[in-house]
Nucleic acid binder design. Sequence first.
DNA 1: CTGATATGCTTGAGCAGTCAAGGAGGTGGC
DNA 2: GCCACCTCCTTGACTGCTCAAGCATATCAG
Lengths: 151, 151
Amino acid sequence: MSDALDASLRLARAQTALVKRFDASLGGLHGVSLADFTTLLRLGQAPGSRMRRVDLAEALGLTASGVTRGLAPLERIGLVTRETDARDGRVAYAALTDTGRARLTDMLATAEQIAAEIFAAPPWSKEDIGQMSALLTRLGGTGLPGHTSTP
Amino acid sequence: MSDALDASLRLARAQTALVKRFDASLGGLHGVSLADFTTLLRLGQAPGSRMRRVDLAEALGLTASGVTRGLAPLERIGLVTRETDARDGRVAYAALTDTGRARLTDMLATAEQIAAEIFAAPPWSKEDIGQMSALLTRLGGTGLPGHTSTP
DNA sequence: CTGATATGCTTGAGCAGTCAAGGAGGTGGC
DNA sequence: GCCACCTCCTTGACTGCTCAAGCATATCAG
């Protein structure tokens, strides 16, 4: 097997382990999945904490229907609201509520801690993490808004 | 956001892109998913091309029920058979059929090509790939049987 | 104004995995 | 020999996504 195929299979494997870990902690402490958290985080980064649902789908690498289904429970528990566009009757916005913004802050702290734990044992150097992130960026398309490493 | 959290989210994002790409090509050419291919590949690496289903689950990072459901269609299309253990009536083996072994060879060629394409543009160096694989290994647990890079 | 086409979103059906429960078989204490 | 317990595997119910279809709204050509 080539190195390239080996790396691909490892990527798939590593992701399931990582997602499980985030889901466990985020779920236990805040009742949300990693996918939920990523959605809220992305919304929080948008101007006015709101995005058109189709743009949110694009940003998250999901389909529009995935966003509809994923947002439903977040609306139900009051972290996100639906807003309409006065100009264009087709579009609906997803927006963070005040509660959502507050809860997101807590979740972010938890997520940071999990990430720190994951990359702590066996000890990762700052360079390792930066390198890996750079390598993954080449694979995953644009995905996240530009993140400049904190040197 | 810390580098560690950033890298984690990129990992998740990169995986879905990568899986989509493998699924598209493997599905189109051979009618199997990346998960199917990984299962067959792992079976092919085992002595006698057979494994206890519980060990297969462990090797693939799945639960036993995940293996039951995943193998069902592969058995139905004749790539895998179920074998029993004369000594222990509880255990069932999953084994590659001759057809399965032959088809796996073709799939492997396809998968190698996809992996090569993925890591070709923008050009990845052999060192980049090795580095990334090493970094991912730290995250994903053991996962694959030891793979020593081809230098 | 009307009809054709494009866009935004939701919905039904399906797939791949999870967990919890349960059945069938094996093992050890007494 | 028997009963308690353990292991292997499957099944039912659920989640989180996909695709295909459909509805509502917008836009553009004539």
